[in-house]
Structure formats: structure tokens, C-alpha cells
Design a binder for these strands. Sequence first.
DNA 1: ATGAAAGCGCTAACAT
DNA 2: ATGTTAGCGCTTTCAT
Lengths: 338, 338
Amino acid sequence: MLEKNGSVTLLDVARAAGVSIKTASRALNNAPELRKATGDHVREVMQQLGYQPNELARGLKSRRSATIAMIAPNLADPFTAAAVQAVQDVAREHRYVVILASSGGDAALELSEVEIMARRQIDGLILIAATSGKNTLKGMLAKDVPVVVFDEPVRGEEVDTITVTNRKGARQATEHLLGHGHRRILAVGARPYLYTCSERVAGYRAAMRSAGAEPVELLVKHENELTSEALAPYLSGPCKVEAIIGLNWVCTMGVLRGLNTFKKRLGEEFAFISFDDFELAEMIPPGLTVVRQPTRELGRQAASLLFERIAEKSHGEARKVVLSTEFVIRGSCGCTPT
Amino acid sequence: MLEKNGSVTLLDVARAAGVSIKTASRALNNAPELRKATGDHVREVMQQLGYQPNELARGLKSRRSATIAMIAPNLADPFTAAAVQAVQDVAREHRYVVILASSGGDAALELSEVEIMARRQIDGLILIAATSGKNTLKGMLAKDVPVVVFDEPVRGEEVDTITVTNRKGARQATEHLLGHGHRRILAVGARPYLYTCSERVAGYRAAMRSAGAEPVELLVKHENELTSEALAPYLSGPCKVEAIIGLNWVCTMGVLRGLNTFKKRLGEEFAFISFDDFELAEMIPPGLTVVRQPTRELGRQAASLLFERIAEKSHGEARKVVLSTEFVIRGSCGCTPT
DNA sequence: ATGAAAGCGCTAACAT
DNA sequence: ATGTTAGCGCTTTCAT
């Protein structure tokens, strides 16, 4: 283990192996034009010296950093966490590494994160957009860095996009509640300017209108406005509703907290459906009926798509992948759990 | 926007500003020895040209990549996800970026991840170890890369470590259940070779022994062995217990699923306490009593500690930070919820 | 206070 | 099949 500066360089390897640095480089990259014996020998020397290639140097020269980035509003959200895990798995298969950043749902912060990634010469970006954001991606796209937009499409840019059937899922859930005879159904959403939210609201409205029922909506600008006080009017008094739909995980949490605060019981006083499934949804009695998104699959496909782009380097048509949500009936909608 | 190769270099900036590249470099780094006017002028030119520094090049020369890595067994675990979010927040304050990787709880995979990070010249590492792992960190420490070990100490290495009062927390929970008059209390854990698990088991045993009660333990090698079938003997029949402790989030999930499968009700037939709190714990009737870990605080402190090390570059004594768990009484232990 | 030159560790042209 | 020579974009001596 000869160590000069704390680390062995490719030149050290070359010298020790009695070859030129380029040959060493070829050995490192398993270049086909190398005689097998030569390559093996060099690689053995690498082993012996404990050589570790410097990815920074590699990236600087070759302009590929073997790094992708993923930016999401909130990393602690289980939807995001599951997607991140899936993306990471795919990245590893490609011998890539993933830099993670959260935008906090703030467009300005998001933009600055994207910029930071650009400086790191990332080879690709997966974005769960904080807004249906206009020009967050300008910089990336100008530099020809592939981008896959996830969950939340971005307007005005031709970008690969992967989403779910938001509208249909919400419509289905609403129709189900209507089918149970409910008319006063509350939809609870946050950040209505988001595509996901607005699509889900649209699905909800469509179902309500078709049934001749009047939509009742509580759409807050920011998740933290989703307090028990905000919900109170709908849980008792003249505005009281019969059923509630939580339009995403955070909203579902808010509603459940609210119900808990006022000691309201699911299934009895209120029917409930959540957009977003999660661990334990079945454990909350009488079991939460949910519109499930194929989270891991979303992450996996987003990453796969991204790596295809990275590999081909072609600028084909932007692909739009739409995965289906799944309606999972448990008890909270009013169905008797089997 | 003069663009040559797709990107503006510092040299372009220097030329456009009529200064040397070194001066431009100083302006970029806000070097104090620069005349303010010069610096401002250069920075303005940077703006105009849309200059973005190349972090790879910077890192190559300066040997700091402005990157830290975090490796955890499972990124989808809410405990981890919350910690990740906290780490990311701190990293941003330091204008650092974080690379995330999951080890899947596999020591070999973990080692390879660490190696990958080394090649990227990360400036620091936060590790939630997959095992109380011996030499995972050898490479990092040899290269003088600061490491903070998180949640799970690593034996045989003098490393900054940040943990919680596992033993005390488990003991407290057990004593509480004993206080309710229960004698047959089951402890459910996974990967007993882990420090966290063994400490919690130790706390449990200590409490049981002090009370003259016989420990009943279901300790599986891997989480996925925690099936309903594995739990069945303890939920009915001659082995039936009165109370259960889930020794971490995954175990709690397993137990709750098991109880659900067999239609057993918490609080009535079984008292229950979970090590690890999570969203919704209060919504699972009658409210889950938990030993809460200060997750975000753990993440925050781990990151802060790491950045101190990165900054000082000193090799002071390894610091051992131990944060307190908090016993949160809700209903599932048998206490009447207020 | 500013500049010139050398090189971080690697890969991409060209040789040979 | 292998070696030579330039750089990638930046920071760092050492001058000035």
C-alpha cells in the first residue's frame, strides 16, 4: 500500500504495473481493445495497491458524473420515501449515485436546488415539482440534461412525465361514496394550484355533478392550514358532511387528526376515503379505503426512463407515462369489511 | 450568453471582465484580499454570462467535494426518512449536498456503498449501520473522512456516535406494562445482533427480571420473518401473552398486522407499546403508547457534528452523544386516555 | 491587490 | 494492442 497523498492514482498503478497510464485507464474501464492478460495484470495491481478511482476527475474529463439527482417537496412523506428507495435501487443497478434534495414545496428553493445540481454536472434529474412550475427546468434542459418529471407535470416544457390517473381515481372514490347514498361529501386538498390536486378535485367534481350533488371543498394553500379548526365546521353543525375524501397523504393525516380531536369515529359518523395508501391504513378501524398509487413502480419507472435517456442521448419525443391508481376497499367508505 | 461547450467557464468570465482567471476565482470565492470593486465587477459579469461553477473541477483540485453521504438500511422507514430530511436541511445550510444510499441491512452491500462514496471524495459520512459492523469504516477513517455513526454504534472504531437511550426506554416501557399488572409480556424484535435491538432487549429483560417475571421474546433474524404465523402462538393458545412490546417500527408494524389478521383488539385483549413513534400512532385506537425517539433532532445533531468535524479537521476524541427517548402514554398500554 | 504557471486525476484524441 | 500528449475547469503556490 504505497500511499503518497493519502491515495493511489492511476499513474501509480500504471508505473507499478509497468504500463502506460492510458493502458491502466483502459484496464479500469474494461476497454475491449486491451489484451486480456494485460488488463488482468493491471487490475491485479490495482487490487494490491488498493486503488480507488477518483470519480471527480473522471467526471470532469468525461462530462458524466455518474450521478442523478432527485428533488421532492418533502422527503419524509411516505409516498416520496418509497419512491426514493425505488429510484435508489435502480440507480445502483446502473452504478449511479443519487443526490437527494427537498424543495419544501417552495418554487424558489426548488430552483436553487436545481441550480446546485447543475453545478455538480448531474447526468439526470427526477423532479417532483413544487409547483406546476414554469421555468425551473430551463437550465437543465438547455444543458441537455435529461429530466423526468414525477407525479406533478410541468407546464410549457417537453419533458418525460410520469403520473397516475389522478382524475379517474378521485372520481371513482367519489362515485363509490355516492353509491353508499352520501350526498354531502367533503373534498380536502392542499395547494390547489398543483396539478395533482386540481386533477383530483376535477374528478371529484365531475362525479358530484353527475350525481346532481353539490361539491363541498376545503382547499388550503398550505398543508399547515389544515387544522382541526379549519375542519370543525364540516364535522358538526349545519355544514356537517356525511363523507370526506382526503386528496393526499398530508390531507388524510389532517383529517384523521381532526376527527380524532373531536372524537369522531370513522365509518360510523363519517365515511372516509384517502387518496394515497400507506402502512397501517388497514389498521385504522374500520380500515381505510384508499386510492392507492403504485409508488415504488412510479419510482422505478421514472428512474428507468431517466437512464434510457441518459444512455441514448437522443432527443426523442417526450414520453408521457400514466400509471393506474388502484381502488382499495376496506371499511372506512362504509363497506362492510369482509 | 456566450456558450462554447454548453457552459461558461471561469476563464470566459475572466476574459469578459478583463481580469486574470485567478482574480475571477477569488471573486467566486469571495476572497477577502480582493478589492471590493474588482470582486463586484467580476461577479456581475458572472451574472451576465450565466456562469455556473463546476463543482467537479473545484473538488478535484481542492479535495473537498462539498458532498456528504448518508447510508441507511431502509430509506422508506419513517424513522430514517425523518432523519434524512433533517440531515438534508443542515447540509443545505452548509451549502453541501447529500448523497443517499441504502444498504438494505446487508453488510456487504453497505461496504460497497461506502466504497462508492469514497471514490466520490465525500467530505463526510453519516451511517446508520447495517450491522454493528467491524470494518465498514476502515476505508473512510484511513482517508481521514469524518464519520458520524447514527443510531447503531460501530464496534472497534473510535468514531463520533449518536444514539438514544435504548435500554432505558425499553426498560421504562416494560416497567409500565408490569405496573399495569401484566406478567406475560412479549418483546418482539428483529436482527438481535444489532446494538439497538440488543440494548432494547436488555432493558426489557432487566425490567422483567426485577419484577420476577419471565421474559418472552420473539427475536427474528430478518424483518420479513415477522409474519402473522410467527406471532400466532403468542396471540392465542397456551402461550398467549397479556402485553406486547414492538422493539422498533418494523416490528410494531408486524405486530399490528398480526393483531389485525386475528381480529385482536388493542387495549382490550392485549396491551401494547411501540418503540418508535410515527404519524398516526395516536389514531390507532386506543392510541399507541410509544417510546419516542427524537428523530429529527438525531438527524440534525448528527449532521451538525459531522460539519464540525469537516470544518475543524482536527482529530479530537470521538464524541458520544446520547439523546433521551420520551415515553408517550396514549391508550394502548392500558392507561385510560385522557 | 493581482497575475502566471503548474497541476488535481483522469480520459480523449491522436499517434505508433 | 499500447503509448503520448493535451486538456477538463478549477485552485494553488509563488511572483509581482
